[in-house]
């Protein structure tokens, strides 16, 4: 089975801090990592390859340094990597991104399955998977946490829902978005990782022209939604501090709760 895994390089948001003065995000000095859910998608792809044969290709769109996550994926066992990078891709919303990734998947061709993470930690939109599936005109299953047998041109998967889970039979080719519950991703093998960072690594770099796309179709220009303002989250509460001994403060508090009929 030939599998394409979509991966994204993201800032490690567990480290994200705000500038207390301006309220802006401090991005400098923050490490970039492979998006956590994408790592589970890649692991799922590698396991399918190991049990049933085939090839795993990883595909990413980002700045030139995003090649690091592709090298890492090759170090984990992916066979080939494709990086989409072009100044014109900057500022893309999910509409432009899914269009660009969709074109790249078509150019790679010959796939049975596309895997991606449930969502990326920098945007949390969870839109790229379904939008790429729609672009390609193939079925999708989101929130996949278990993959059962592959039978002919179909596959059985488990999908997490609010009330429990669903077992679904899906015709291939299809696209799944994978949750962290699915597996424990492996670490890269040092030897493979070193090879993946070398000049002979099987990584291709494509720009908009390689995909046959104009600048009007990609990046900010090709987007339908635009960020018009960012601001730090704010609260509008009174913030009254009740002073005195614990007994005194609690008495005041109970008084406030009574006033508002909360007790």
């Amino acid at each position: 089975m030939n599998i394409i895994v979509l991966i994204k390089q993201v800032p490690d948001t567990t480290e994200v801090k705000l500038d207390p003065r301006t309220g802006n995000l401090i991005r400098e000095g923050i490490d970039s990592v492979m998006n956590p859910d994408d790592r589970h998608a890649l692991e799922a792809g590698l396991r399918l390859k190991e049990s049933g044969g085939g090839k795993v290709t990883v595909l990413s769109m980002g700045p030139p340094q995003a090649i690091d996550v592709i090298s890492e994926a090759l170090g984990m066992g992916a066979d080939r990597g494709v990086l989409l990078t072009d100044r014109a891709f900057a500022g893309a919303d999910t509409w432009a991104t899914s269009h660009t990734l969709g074109k790249a998947v078509e150019k790679i061709g010959d796939y049975d399955l596309i895997l991606c993470g449930r969502q990326a930690i920098d945007g949390d939109t969870a839109q790229i998977g379904p939008q790429v599936a729609e672009y390609l005109g193939i079925p999708q299953v989101t929130y996949v946490f278990g993959m059962e047998e592959v039978k002919g041109r179909s596959m059985t998967v488990r999908r997490r829902i609010e009330a429990g889970y669903e077992r679904l039979r899906v015709s291939l080719p299809a696209l799944f978005t994978v949750t962290a519950e699915a597996n424990s991703p492996r670490d890269p093998v040092i030897g493979s990782l070193l090879a993946a960072c070398g000049a002979k690594a099987p990584i291709q770099v494509w720009d908009a022209a390689d995909l046959g796309m104009t600048t009007a179709q990609v990046g900010l220009e090709g987007s339908l939604t635009h960020v018009i303002r960012t601001f730090p989250p704010k609260s509008q509460r009174a913030g009254e501090i009740l002073e005195g001994s614990p007994a005194q403060a609690v008495e005041d508090l109970v008084g406030r709760l009574k006033e508002r009929n909360l007790i």
Binding site: K17, T225, T230
Partner: peptide, 16 residues
Amino acid sequence: PAFGGNVMATIANRYS
């Protein structure tokens, strides 16, 4: 919210 809730972003959809 974006970036794990660290920033709020207002988004417009003018073109579609």
